[in-house]
Computed example of a mutant assay.
Amino acid sequence: MSIVVTAASGQLGRLTVEALLARGVPAAGIIATSRDVTTIKDFADRGVDVRRADFAEPDTLPAAFAGADRLLLISTTTPSERVANHRRAIDAAVAAGVQLVAFTSMLRADTSTTILARTHHATEAYLCERLPSVMLRNGWYLENYTAQLPQVLQSGVLAGAAGPGRISAATRADYADAAAVVLTTDGHAGTTYELGGDHAFTLTELAAAISAASGKRIEYTDLPVDAFARLLTGVGVPAALADVLADADRAMSRDELYTDSGDLRRLIGRPTTTPAEAIAAALQV
């Protein structure tokens, strides 16, 4: 069996390749793709089949997907281009004879009101029409918060617009392990997994967890959505991305990034990483 992992140079893609290797998939049975193959040369050095694939250049896709049995379609980053890029990848997978596509969608993509969910759900619909598929509806990444720790510790403030909303976040490694399970075992076609961490939290609770781990008092400051977007642009986040992130916080305030499905824990066969564990690991780096 040959397994394609798209966007293998990205953080989730890299972790998924590593998870496949850890599950005993031979390096030669993994096809890692990227727009720039020099960024995944380390995989090639370990025997992984490295190929160039650029969803904006459909001519690159037939060779990239040739001979593949299963494919992990990792959602691309630019919302305005996402659906068109995904459709080109799905069409190429059909042409290549891929038997199963797992797509990294978004938690509650069919009911969420976020900007992000609309593009993910459109991809889901197109994929379901074309190929046997599995929807990996990933929740928020814990790394979205742990990456902010230097700034949060410096300022003493964790800012957001999520109010009292609960967030079921997990680490990228947790989601990568789930993807590896789906790609290497049978019985997942036609299934939608709502994936999130076991330990949901509010941003007030997250600020308290950072305080406990760091020994420095951190306060959560809840802002109106527009004000949070302006804060993000003020620290250098591009305006379009700032709007998407602020919109996600708005949805968090309505519990749209919360799930108690237990799907992630059951897939990976272990408890998910707790916020405290993720914070502690980030503080040690």
Rank of each mutant, 00 (worst) to 15 (best):
residue 52 R to N: 06
residue 97 G to M: 12
residue 25 V to F: 08
residue 47 G to M: 09
residue 63 A to M: 03
residue 44 A to R: 13
residue 124 E to N: 14
residue 83 V to A: 06
residue 48 V to N: 03
residue 108 R to S: 13
residue 26 P to I: 05
residue 134 V to R: 04
residue 126 Y to S: 03
residue 119 T to M: 09
residue 45 D to A: 15
residue 58 P to V: 10
residue 26 P to F: 14
residue 84 A to F: 01
residue 85 N to Q: 15
residue 143 E to M: 11
residue 108 R to Y: 10
residue 71 L to D: 00
residue 75 S to C: 11
residue 68 A to S: 04
residue 36 D to R: 11
residue 122 A to W: 05
residue 98 V to G: 01
residue 90 I to Q: 02
residue 41 K to L: 10
residue 88 R to W: 02
residue 52 R to S: 12
residue 46 R to K: 15
residue 31 I to M: 06
residue 49 D to I: 11
residue 60 T to G: 09
residue 80 S to R: 13
residue 23 R to G: 10
residue 137 R to K: 13
residue 126 Y to R: 01
residue 70 R to D: 01
residue 49 D to N: 10
residue 143 E to R: 11
residue 106 M to C: 07
residue 59 D to F: 02
residue 123 T to E: 05
residue 35 R to A: 12
residue 39 T to H: 11
residue 85 N to H: 09
residue 116 L to F: 11
residue 37 V to F: 08
residue 79 P to S: 06
residue 137 R to Y: 04
residue 143 E to W: 10
residue 66 A to Y: 02
residue 70 R to V: 00
residue 59 D to H: 10
residue 123 T to G: 06
residue 93 A to F: 03
residue 141 Y to C: 06
residue 97 G to S: 13
residue 124 E to V: 08
residue 148 Q to Y: 07
residue 123 T to F: 03
residue 101 V to I: 15
residue 128 C to L: 12
residue 120 H to V: 05
residue 50 V to N: 05
residue 51 R to I: 03
residue 52 R to T: 14
residue 143 E to V: 12
residue 43 F to N: 09
residue 119 T to Q: 11
residue 123 T to Q: 03
residue 22 A to N: 07
residue 32 A to Y: 05
residue 78 T to N: 14
residue 56 A to K: 14
residue 55 F to K: 08
residue 128 C to D: 13
residue 85 N to S: 08
residue 21 L to T: 04
residue 45 D to R: 10
residue 111 T to G: 09
residue 23 R to K: 15
residue 93 A to E: 01
residue 133 S to A: 14
residue 145 Y to M: 13
residue 81 E to N: 04
residue 118 R to Y: 04
residue 23 R to S: 10
residue 33 T to C: 01
residue 83 V to C: 03
residue 87 R to G: 03
residue 86 H to D: 14
residue 33 T to Y: 00
residue 133 S to V: 00
residue 148 Q to K: 13
residue 127 L to S: 01
residue 96 A to D: 02
residue 44 A to H: 11
residue 130 R to M: 00
residue 21 L to R: 14
residue 44 A to C: 03
residue 85 N to T: 03
residue 140 W to G: 04
residue 74 I to M: 12
residue 49 D to K: 05
residue 44 A to G: 15
residue 73 L to E: 08
residue 128 C to E: 13
residue 109 A to S: 15
residue 60 T to A: 07
residue 105 S to I: 08
residue 97 G to T: 05
residue 26 P to Y: 08
residue 36 D to G: 04
residue 38 T to S: 15
residue 20 L to R: 01
residue 70 R to E: 00
residue 18 E to W: 10
residue 77 T to Y: 04
residue 101 V to H: 08
residue 122 A to G: 04
residue 44 A to L: 03
residue 137 R to M: 04
residue 104 T to Q: 08
residue 127 L to K: 00
residue 34 S to L: 09
residue 145 Y to K: 08
residue 62 P to G: 09
residue 47 G to L: 04
residue 71 L to R: 00
residue 87 R to P: 02
residue 119 T to G: 09
residue 123 T to A: 05
residue 52 R to M: 15
residue 42 D to N: 13
residue 139 G to T: 08
residue 100 L to M: 11
residue 54 D to P: 10
residue 41 K to W: 02
residue 52 R to C: 11
residue 108 R to D: 12
residue 29 G to F: 02
residue 31 I to R: 14
residue 48 V to T: 06
residue 142 L to V: 12
residue 131 L to I: 00
residue 142 L to D: 05
residue 44 A to V: 02
residue 65 F to K: 00
residue 49 D to W: 01
residue 116 L to A: 14
residue 28 A to D: 14
residue 95 A to M: 06
residue 26 P to A: 09
residue 25 V to G: 07
residue 70 R to H: 05
residue 134 V to Y: 02
